[in-house]
Design a protein around this nucleic acid. Structure first.
Lengths: 212, 212
DNA sequence: CTCCTCACTACACGCATGTGTAGTATGGTT
DNA sequence: AACCATACTACACATGCGTGTAGTGAGGAG
C-alpha cells in the first residue's frame, strides 16, 4: 500500500533532521526535545540543525508545513479518486501520517499545526457534502462548523491516546485495541447520543437563553 | 450558583501556590511555566513553593489531585441529586472546573491527570446506564469503552479550543461561540454519523479482517 | 525563658540548552 | 588555478532554570 519511503540513509540531511524532529517532538514534546537530541537521532551535528532551520521554533514550523503538505496531497488524491463511503476520513489521514501521529497530536494540543487541522476540516466538509444528501431534515448549522467539531472529536482518540487506552483496558494502537476501538466508534457513530425530543428540548432551551 | 470561593487573600499560601500553578501551567504549559513565575503570581518566594511541594513534578501532581478531588465531589453530587436528562455531563464538569479548564486540557493531552479523566469516564458510564434503556438494539461494546471514547471526544473541543475557534469563525469561549457550539453539538449528537447499513457494512469488514 | 517546629525568604550552585562564531571540506564556476 | 557558495563540524557563550542550603521570625509547649 503506502510506500515506506526511501531509507533514512538516502534522504538529504535536511530531510533526515526534519524526520528526526517529528519523531523527537512527538515522543518528548516540543520543550523537552532538544536540538542536540534531534541532531544525534539524525546523525548530524547540532550546528547543522541550526544551519538548515535557523531556530528550534522554525524547525517546528517546518515540521508543521511538511505535515500540511502531506495532508494536502492526500486531500487532493481523495478528491480525485472519489472513494466514497469511507466512513472516517480521519482514519485515512492518520494512516497517511504514519509514525508522525504523536507529533501531530501534541502539536495540535499546543495550538500549533493549524493548517494541518484546517486541511482535515476541508476533508470533513467534503465528506459532509456527501452524507448530507441522505439526511431528511436540514441541518441548522453551517457545514464547516459541523466538520470542525467532528474533526476535533475524531482527533481526540489520538490526542488522549494514553487515557483512552487505559479506559478501554487495551492499548489502542495494538491490533486488538484498534479492533475494539473500531467497534466502539461504529457503535457510537451509528446511534445518536441525543434523541430527537432531547435535541428539540435542548434547542428550545438555547432559544430561551438567546432571547433573554 | 457556584460560589466564587474565598478571596485568594484568604487562602493559605499553599492553596494560593496551587491555584497559581494551575493557572500558569494552563496558560504556558508545564515546561514553560516556571517555579519563579508561579511563586510571583502567588505572591510568595520561589523557595516556599519547594518547601510546600518539594519539586515541580510534585506540584503538578498536587494540581492533578486537586482537580480529581473537585471532579469526584461533583460526581458524588450528581449521583445523589440524580439530575437526569442533562445532555452532556462533560459540560457540567467543565463548568465545575471553571478557570482550570486550560490546565486540564493541557494536562490530559500530555498524559497527566489520569484520575480526572477516569472520573469523567465514570460519569459517562452512569449517563450511559440511563440512556441505554431507551435503546432498541443491544450495544455490542462494553459500556465503559463507549464512555471512554465519548468522554475523550467531548474533551476534544476544550483541548483543540484554538483550532475549533478558528474553524468555526468564532471564539468558542465567547457567548456567541458557546451558542454556536451548542447548536452544532446538538445537531451532531442528534444525528448518527453512520447509517445502520453503513454500520453493518463496517462491522462486516471488521469481522472479515478478524477472521483472517 | 528555652526550645522546638514550621512557614517562609534570600541566595548561590550546577547544568542543560538555545544560540552564536569560527573554521573545514567539497564541488561547481569562471 | 582561483574563487565562491554551501553543507557541515567543533566549540564557546550566556542564561534561565530546578534545586539545594542557610538563615529568620513567629508561635506554641515545657
Amino acid at each position: 500500500m503506502s510506500t515506506t519511503g526511501p531509507d533514512p540513509e538516502d534522504l538529504t540531511a535536511r530531510a533526515r533532521i526534519r524526520d528526526a524532529a517529528l519523531l523527537q517532538f512527538g515522543a518528548h514534546g516540543f520543550e523537552r526535545a532538544t536540538i542536540r537530541g534531534i541532531a544525534e537521532a539524525a546523525g548530524v551535528s547540532s550546528g547543522l540543525v541550526r544551519h538548515h532551520f535557523g531556530s528550534k521554533q522554525a524547525l517546528r514550523e517546518a515540521c508543521d508545513d511538511y505535515l500540511a503538505k502531506v495532508l494536502r496531497r492526500l486531500n487532493d488524491q481523495v478528491r480525485k479518486d472519489r472513494a466514497p463511503g469511507d466512513a472516517n476520513y480521519v482514519a485515512a489521514a492518520r494512516a497517511a501520517l504514519g509514525p508522525y501521529q504523536r507529533y501531530l497530536a501534541r502539536a495540535l494540543a499546543e495550538g500549533s499545526a493549524a493548517s494541518v487541522f484546517d486541511e482535515m476540516v476541508q476533508m470533513g466538509v467534503q465528506w459532509l457534502a456527501d452524507t448530507d444528501k441522505d439526511r431528511p431534515d436540514p441541518p441548522d448549522v453551517d457545514r464547516k462548523a459541523r466538520a470542525t467539531v467532528i474533526t476535533a472529536m475524531s482527533l481526540a482518540i489520538s490526542i488522549l491516546h494514553e487515557h483512552v487506552s487505559r479506559g478501554m483496558g487495551v492499548e489502542v494502537s495494538s491490533p486488538e485495541g484498534d479492533l475494539l476501538l473500531a467497534r466502539t466508534l461504529i457503535d457510537i457513530y451509528s446511534h445518536p447520543l441525543l434523541s430527537p425530543e432531547g435535541a428539540a428540548l435542548a434547542r428550545a432551551a438555547l432559544d430561551k437563553i438567546q432571547n433573554e
